[in-house]
């Protein structure tokens, strides 16, 4: 069996090397990937979507349909972990695998976390809102937001944070995040456009069709950020407490 694995790995490695032999040179401006569709995005992004960061415009508009499903992948992962790990409230006391008990609270850790967390959150909001002009966007901002709560949960304990951020609202909010994305796309249908055609929003927002695309992208980025933040926290809460939602790590 080990020998078979070795043969398979070597064959695959050989094939991959063979494939690279034929690839265009690194950074070649004439490679097919640099001359076919990407020039269109670079040249037309500002004109068509009024978003100077064309990574954002490709991600959230030209290929926004992919990004919507990527967000749903995260949502799906969160629901999966929650559904499989979550234990019922009634059998909460039954310990399956003992974890080391926490010993008191660490003053230095808590004080540092209390200072850092709000700054992280403000920075995260900036990353979400400024995704059109600089590197950033919903996924990155959402991860920073989520990790600020994870930091607090590590410094205090999970139960303290769960009092502020209820388990039920975590699930509902992660659903609302993807629903924002989907909703922005679906309303385009009622406004006479195709799915995710943000320019249809221009009549409602009172701006030009190009400007409406930019606003639409901001809207979906916010939806992404909400889902990513809550799912990040939900994954941490489930995994760190083994699905029991007690004090956690």
């Amino acid at each position: 069996m080990k020998l078979l694995s070795l043969v398979i790995s070597l064959t695959l490695g050989f094939l991959l090397l063979l494939a690279t032999a034929d690839l265009p040179d690194w950074g070649d401006p004439q490679s097919p990937a640099s001359i076919h569709v990407s020039n269109y995005y670079i040249e037309n992004s500002v004109e068509q979507t009024s978003v100077p960061n064309f990574v954002t415009s490709v991600l959230a508009d030209y290929r926004g349909y992919d990004t919507m499903f990527e967000t749903i992948v995260i949502f799906c992962a969160g629901i999966t972990v929650l559904t499989i790990l979550r234990r019922s409230h009634r059998q909460k006391k039954k310990e399956v695998r003992p974890r080391p008990a926490r010993e008191g609270k660490d003053l230095i850790l808590i004080s540092a976390a209390r200072i850092i967390a709000p700054m992280m959150q403000i920075f995260a909001l900036y990353v979400v809102a400024h995704g059109h002009h600089s590197p950033g966007g919903g996924f990155q901002g959402g991860v920073i937001l989520g990790s600020s709560f994870i930091l607090l949960a590590l410094a205090y304990d999970l139960e303290t944070i769960l009092k502020r951020l209820k388990e039920r609202s975590v699930i509902i909010m992660s659903g609302i995040g993807v629903a924002i994305y989907m909703g922005i796309g679906m309303i385009c249908l009622f406004l006479g456009g195709n799915f995710l055609d943000y320019s249809a929003w221009s009549s409602v927002l009172g701006v030009s069709a190009v400007e409406a695309r930019s606003h639409g992208m901001l809207g979906v980025e916010i939806g992404v950020a909400v889902t990513v933040m809550y799912i990040m926290f939900s994954l941490y809460a489930d995994l760190s407490s083994g699905g029991e939602m007690d004090e956690g790590l």
């Binding site: 076919h36 569709v37 269109y40 995005y41 508009d61 030209y62 290929r63 926004g64 349909y65 992919d66 456009g193 195709n194 799915f195 995710l196 055609d197 943000y198 320019s199």
Partner: peptide, 13 residues
Amino acid sequence: HYHIGNWQPPFGI
């Protein structure tokens, strides 16, 4: 052919 986001292929999906 249904163009999502009203982008012409191959630029959109």
